[in-house]
């Protein structure tokens, strides 16, 4: 399995995505520098996980369909490895990539704080990091969801479009469904795709009260984990039976 994960790294490592993440964080730093407001700086940090989710969804959306459309699976899948092993190695690679992006973000923030000699204590920094990590469950979910889309949809561009639209519009769609009293939406992954909604506790309490639902970060983790497992199982079943045709 380790060898297969290494293969995924060799095949998919994309320097452009890393540069994009670094440039985004530098841009955020510049915003702070001109605004001279530490709160703005910290607020922007909460949006980084959504950005990472978008980058990860780009990688995940092509992880199966690209190999089919570019016909590389014609060689890769004729080797003595189970298809389920190959699929899981791809998902592990994406999980590791997500962790790498998070560590990269935290490191850059730490360097910026140290270089600009901010008046931030270690406790403040730990608090920031905890908050940052608390916003990341949707990224892990998006890996399983987009990989599933990549298994069932041949066209990687269509997969990217679906996952991007879902990521961007999840909050608005959730509000729309709630407004027409489709309260069952709280049991789907849709309201939890953007964890920045939990930035404002008063707002989320208001939504919960109005629609008589219970959107919480903990419930979000449970629901996203459940759907991740469902999508993983479905992906394995479908991928095992799939005819590899371009």
């Amino acid at each position: 399995m380790i060898k297969l994960v290494k293969n995924e790294y060799k095949k998919n490592y994309n320097m452009k995505h890393n540069i994009l993440i670094i440039l985004t964080i530098i841009t955020i730093t510049l915003i702070y520098k001109y605004s001279q407001n530490i709160n703005i700086f910290l607020d922007t940090l909460t949006y980084i996980p959504s950005f990472i989710a978008l980058i990860i969804s780009f990688s995940a959306s092509s992880i199966i369909s690209k190999e089919i459309s570019e016909e590389t699976f014609k060689i890769y899948l004729t080797k003595p490895k189970k298809r389920s092993e190959i699929l899981i190695s791809k998902i592990i690679y994406l999980l590791l990539l997500t962790i790498f992006y998070q560590l990269l973000t935290i490191t850059i923030y730490l360097v910026i704080i140290l270089l600009t000699k901010q008046n931030i204590t270690l406790n403040d920094f730990i608090k920031i990091i905890k908050e940052f990590i608390s916003y990341t469950p949707p990224i892990y979910f998006i890996i399983f969801f987009t990989t599933f889309l990549s298994v069932i949809i041949k066209n990687s561009k269509l997969t990217i479009t679906i996952s991007t639209i879902l990521l961007i519009t999840s909050t608005s769609l959730s509000e729309l469904f709630l407004s027409i009293t489709w309260n069952f939406i709280e049991y789907t992954f849709l309201p939890y795709l953007d964890y920045t909604i939990f930035n404002n506790p008063q707002n989320i309490t208001l939504i919960n009260n109005i629609y008589n639902i219970n959107l919480t970060q903990t419930n979000g983790i449970i629901i996203l984990s459940t759907y991740s497992i469902i999508f993983l199982i479905l992906s394995i079943i479908i991928f095992n039976r799939k005819d590899i045709t371009n």
């Binding site: 060799k10 095949k11 570019e70 016909e71 590389t72 014609k74 060689i75 004729t78």
Partner: peptide
Amino acid sequence: IIENPTFYKDL
């Protein structure tokens, strides 16, 4: 080799 031998083009 099934049809054209297609490898990873950037490697």
